[in-house]
Simulated assay, not measured.
Amino acid sequence: MESSILQTCTNLIKNAQSIVVLTGAGISTESGIKDFRSQTGIYQMAPEYILSLNYFYQNPKGFYQFALENLYHPEALPNKGHEILAQWEQEGKVTSIITQNIDGLHQKAGSKQVIEFHGTMKIASCQNCRHVYSTQDMINRLNTMDDFYVCDQCRTPAEKDRYIKPDVVLFGDTGKWFSIDGFNKILNLINESDCLLVLGTSLKVTPFSTFPQYRSEGSPLIIVNKGDSPYDTVKDSYVIHHSIGETLTKINDCLNPPNY
């Protein structure tokens, strides 16, 4: 990592007063969670279709077996990147984190202002009455019931209407942020920020990939990601192809030098 780009990014973050952070799988891989599209990612083990709404309704048991094994990581711990973002939020520098991740590690680290754009694996909801089950509830039901994925809190005649789905956004699905109000809130946060920090995402999956386009004129875009992104060469972008934890640690050490 070149010291010049690191120093430039450090100065930009130092001078920023309202940083919005976009995070993807790359920050979670540093906590031991598999990503999706890399050579060792989840899609090397199974096709994308298994994480679609159609597959969920066709084979809810198979979907849950795959999701609980590959998407649910209650034992995972936040890494240095998560911890520094939480610290910067506490210091008033980071105003919001918008994440593609469904693991809850930002909240575990202490971040409060987190938008889980693709939902969460912590809970599941009946698609009819919206009764909420914890994921541990669903594991217990799976181990003790045949039709564990059918809600027993509502009585609508069609069984499929009572399916309990994890609160994650699947292919062919929409989440709470996939609405006009949801998009407007996110785009306003980005437009009103004075620095956009992108961590661990290639910014190639829509609609998340469109978000950097809505930053205000002249607002810097800092990207820390091991792979390339379509925004690497746009105006006012600063790119570091390196580990997120190591990069943020070096920046944070410059912002908060130790007192000896």
Score class of each variant (00 low, 15 high):
Q65V: 03
H73K: 04
N259C: 05
E217S: 08
G182V: 04
N15V: 01
E217F: 09
Y55F: 15
N143T: 10
Y57G: 10
Y149T: 10
A67V: 09
S28R: 03
N128R: 10
S111A: 12
L196G: 10
P47K: 04
V132H: 11
A109F: 07
D253V: 02
G227P: 09
Q44D: 07
Q113C: 07
F148T: 07
E217V: 04
P60H: 09
Q107V: 03
R130S: 15
G119L: 05
I186A: 04
Y163L: 06
G41Q: 02
N225Q: 12
N143G: 10
K204Y: 08
S209A: 15
S202V: 02
M121Q: 12
Y49M: 04
Y163W: 11
A86G: 13
K61W: 06
Q113R: 10
Y163M: 06
E246Q: 09
V198W: 04
P257R: 03
S134D: 13
N140K: 14
I223H: 12
A46H: 12
F56P: 11
Y43V: 01
T206S: 15
I222F: 07
P230L: 02
A124L: 02
N143R: 08
Y64R: 01
Q87H: 14
E75T: 12
T249Q: 10
A46F: 11
T156K: 13
V234H: 13
A86D: 12
